[in-house]
């Protein structure tokens, strides 16, 4: 299902009897609206990890790292948050006019090392890593994943304050405002990696509604030397945009692209290898995902 899976990964998956679907989940949020008018403005947002966009039928996205920024750059508190079997959901009051950023940002560390002749596997936060994994562990290999999943919503006139980069992970900077997208019109965005232009990065754009069609209708794009890319949305609707940047690290120990993003329920810190663990790939990577709404002409 994923084009980036290398032959070795298939072989390993077969050996471990790993279901391939483990490798292919998408993390997404779906707002009730992205363009709003009125005097008492709210959105509700579903957040989930699933294969089909945008159907919550697999795992909820955890909300521990949810952060909402208002048009004035200050944090906004989510209300009525809850996490169920398949999805999380929360409400956002849009008390000011302008653009809001709703983001789940997380850093996960995974480690593999030897202890007492056994291979240990560990997964958790950077803080827990420093506490729990012995500094001088034998054959220690570390993989660090920074993930950012975002949606943007606007009450009234679109504003730009929330696009001020934080300089951490992959970030989207608009040339075209993400709440001003119209079917058939070109939209240009810029991707940053740790505050610098993310050059030659593959960007994938997939329209929602996958469940009811046979082909993915995926648009494969690439950022230019300034980190920019342009997409022309063929139809109105919700789209999922994603990008991954890898850096450092040795070639994969057991190459596979694990897209769980470390936010799925059950992706909690645990020590010790189990057959269901995904293959280990050391190095650093940054993941970005955003849901964009495109209005009809």
């Amino acid at each position: 299902m994923k084009s980036s899976l290398e032959p070795a990964a298939y072989a390993l998956a077969a050996i471990l009897c790993l279901p391939l679907s483990v490798e292919a989940h998408r993390a997404w949020m779906l707002p009730s609206s992205t363009v709003l008018s009125g005097s008492d403005v709210w959105v509700t947002v579903d957040a989930a990890i699933s294969n089909d966009l945008f159907y919550f039928d697999h795992n909820p996205m955890r909300l521990e790292h949810l952060a909402i920024m208002g048009p004035d750059g200050l944090p906004v508190r989510a209300e009525n948050a809850s996490t169920g079997k398949f999805r999380s959901t929360f409400d956002v009051p849009l008390k000011q006019s302008g653009t809001y950023k709703v983001a789940v940002v997380n850093t996960t560390v995974a480690a593999m090392y030897e202890e007492g002749g056994e291979t240990k596997r560990w997964r958790g936060s950077p803080d827990a890593f420093a506490r729990e994994v012995p500094a001088g562990a034998k054959s220690l290999q570390v993989s660090k994943t920074h993930s950012r999943t975002e949606v943007f919503v606007t009450a009234g006139k679109p504003t730009d304050t929330v696009f001020q980069p934080t300089g951490v992970g992959i970030e989207l900077v608009p040339v075209t405002h993400p709440n001003d997208l119209v079917q058939g019109e070109p939209a240009t965005f810029r991707l940053l990696r740790d505050g610098q232009p993310a050059v030659d990065v593959a960007v994938v754009v997939v329209p929602g509604g996958i469940r009811y069609r046979d082909t993915l209708k995926e648009m494969a794009l690439s950022t230019d030397k300034d980190g920019k890319f342009t997409v022309r949305f063929p139809e109105a609707g919700m789209y999922w945009l994603s990008a991954t940047v890898r850096s450092g690290g040795a070639p994969p120990v057991a190459a596979a692209d694990h897209q769980g993003m470390g936010m799925a329920a059950g992706a909690s810190a645990s020590a010790g290898a189990t057959p269901a663990q995904p293959p280990f790939r050391p190095g650093e990577r940054a993941l970005y995902g955003a849901t964009l709404e495109v209005m009809a002409k």
């Binding site: 363009v35 709003l36 008018s37 009125g38 005097s39 008492d40 009234g156 679109p158 119209v182 209005m295």
Partner: peptide, 22 residues
């Protein structure tokens, strides 16, 4: 009441984009 009717102004989506939202 409370100017609630403004909630649907964005459904005039061309007008909303061109000037309504201002």
């Amino acid at each position: 009441k409370n100017n609630d009717g403004t909630k649907w102004l964005k459904d005039l989506r061309q007008w909303w984009r061109r000037s309504g939202r201002e």
